[in-house]
């Protein structure tokens, strides 16, 4: 009796399932208008192309976009590259020199500083010292003129 009841319920459920499946199956006949779908696909591809354009461009493309003259006339481009190369070399050399001579990154051996005070022998007496009683002038001559006395440096 019980089994029969369960069996009946199962059958009813199965029937309801089948009926529902049939109803849902009908939804497959809901079809969109072809024109709307075509337009939708076109809109998708338009947006996709737009997205593609907005994607990050490669570095070369960006350069071409920003400095077109560089690419339009290659000889100027090469010349500009050469100038840039020389300039960079110059800047690099300067940077190297300044790094080896001063600054916090240089070794102690290269640190520029004031030179140590070296005792200097200052010559205070450039002239030979003379005895205090050394006569500067000779005896007056007959016309009372005096002439410096000659002296000998010892």
């Amino acid at each position: 009796m019980m089994n029969e009841k369960v069996s009946n319920e199962t059958t009813a459920e199965e029937e309801a399932d089948v009926l529902l499946q049939k109803l849902l199956h009908l939804k497959q006949y809901e079809v969109p208008e072809v024109a709307r779908m075509t337009r939708n696909k076109q809109n998708i591809m338009r947006q996709v192309r737009q997205a593609q354009m907005e994607k990050r461009k490669p570095l070369l493309d960006l350069l071409e976009l920003n400095i077109p003259w560089f690419f339009a006339e290659p000889k100027y481009g090469i010349a500009a590259l050469f100038v840039a190369f020389v300039g960079l070399q110059y800047v690099g050399m300067n940077a190297k020199n300044s790094a080896t001579s001063t600054g916090i990154y240089t070794s102690t051996a290269n640190v520029a500083s004031f030179e140590q005070d070296v005792p200097v022998n200052i010559v205070t007496n450039r002239y030979p010292s003379l005895p205090s009683n050394y006569p500067l002038f000779g005896e007056p001559q007959g016309d009372q003129s005096v002439i410096p006395a000659a002296f000998e440096y010892k």
């Binding site: 009926l19 049939k22 109803l23 199956h25 009908l26 006949y29 809901e30 079809v31 969109p32 208008e33």
Partner: peptide
């Protein structure tokens, strides 16, 4: 806002049963 049914629905067996 529904799409309209295709006329072929009337040829469907399930539709006939229902």
């Amino acid at each position: 806002s529904l799409d309209s049914f295709d006329q072929d629905i009337k040829l469907d067996d399930d539709y006939h049963d229902l």
